[in-house]
């Protein structure tokens, strides 16, 4: 099993390497290069050539790629074109704000979603199950920014209970910040919840169809015992998978939610850098996000391997 996990982590790193090529090439196909992005439209050919020389843009792309990769690996993310600040400082600040929001949302969403999914699976086709099912279809169907807008409308503008735009969370006062970040948290929870509930329900129902569950039923085990003792251990693999994958889904949710609530996190930084075409910043933020995403995918697979003995041996 250990070998398999190491192999999975190695594969993950390889994927990350492939992603770094895409990120670098993606930002390289700019019609104008970084030099023209810095100088703007007033640039003359001589100015451009001079700046390209200083930035080293005249060298072939693959050399610049390895240089860029080497810098990132040694922790040097470069400098923002927008304000000239070192990117590791900017990203460091923003990263923690996003982590705060994501953790807050995950801490509320996951227990709630697993509980609801479990109950729906325990009483399939009941009123409860049908209600949960239609409500979740609804939340899967509507975009997260619409949920956010509705929440702002009701709870920020009309009722005035929570702020509709947020400044950065204060780590000194984690609980005091909770009500200020309440609406973005609820938005993320609602989008996450729907997916996790449905997948948890499907995973457990899938296990409940197995013959050994029928066996347990026939020998007279109670419903709660069947689900808790017999079904959950075998549904654990898929569920861990679902949770990890959806935490990855938080990434795209976070981008939209941070923009709606003008929350100073990494997602908004990414959108801002796209608007300003700040290439080094785009590359750096994209790599941070992708690392998280790949890590979560690895975690999902490792979780599945740990939970399911049959996966522990390579075929």
């Amino acid at each position: 099993m250990f070998k398999l996990i190491v192999r999975r982590i190695f594969l993950g790193l390889l994927t990350l390497l492939a992603i770094s090529v895409i990120v670098f090439l993606g930002t390289e196909i700019l019609p104008g290069d970084v030099a023209s992005a810095i100088l703007g439209q007033s640039a003359t050919e001589t100015n451009l050539a001079a700046l390209r020389e200083t930035l080293g843009l005249n060298r072939p792309a693959y050399i610049r790629y390895f240089e860029w990769l080497g810098n990132i690996l040694s922790g040097d993310l470069g400098v923002s074109l927008t304000n000239g600040m070192p990117l590791d400082r900017i990203i460091g600040l923003r990263l923690w704000n996003t982590v705060y929001l994501a953790l807050y949302a995950a801490a509320v969403a996951m227990p709630l979603a697993l509980g609801l999914g479990l109950l729906s699976a325990a009483y399939p086709e009941s009123h409860f199950d049908r209600t949960v099912s239609s409500v979740t279809v609804f939340f899967i169907s509507i975009p997260d920014f619409v949920i956010a807008v509705l929440l702002i409308m009701i709870f920020a503008v009309e009722l005035g209970w929570f702020p509709g735009a947020i400044h950065r969370p204060r780590w000194e006062d984690v609980f005091g910040t909770m009500d200020k970040t309440f609406l973005p948290m609820v938005t993320l929870v609602l989008t996450l919840l729907a997916h996790v509930v449905r997948m948890t329900r499907a995973a457990i129902l899938d296990v409940l169809k197995q013959p050994y569950i029928e066996m347990a039923l026939l020998k007279g085990a109670s419903k709660s015992r069947i689900i808790l003792k017999h079904a959950i251990p075998n549904a654990m693999g898929p569920i861990v998978n679902v949770v990890a994958l959806n935490l990855g889904y938080l990434i795209s949710g976070v981008v939209v939610v941070e923009v709606v609530f003008t929350y100073p996190g990494l997602g908004r930084l990414m959108v801002d850098s796209v608007v300003f075409r700040d290439v080094p910043q785009i590359q750096a933020v994209a790599m941070v996000f992708c690392s998280f995403y790949v890590a979560l995918n690895i975690f999902a697979d490792v979780g599945a391997i740990m939970a399911n003995p049959r996966l522990r041996y390579a075929k």
Binding site: V271, I282, N297
Partner: peptide
């Protein structure tokens, strides 16, 4: 396919839009 699937779609879109 695996490489593309391990790339958050929104980031792919943002990178492409930034360049094109």
């Amino acid at each position: 396919i695996d490489v593309f699937l391990s790339f958050p779609p929104i980031l792919l879109a943002l990178i492409v839009i930034a360049s094109l």
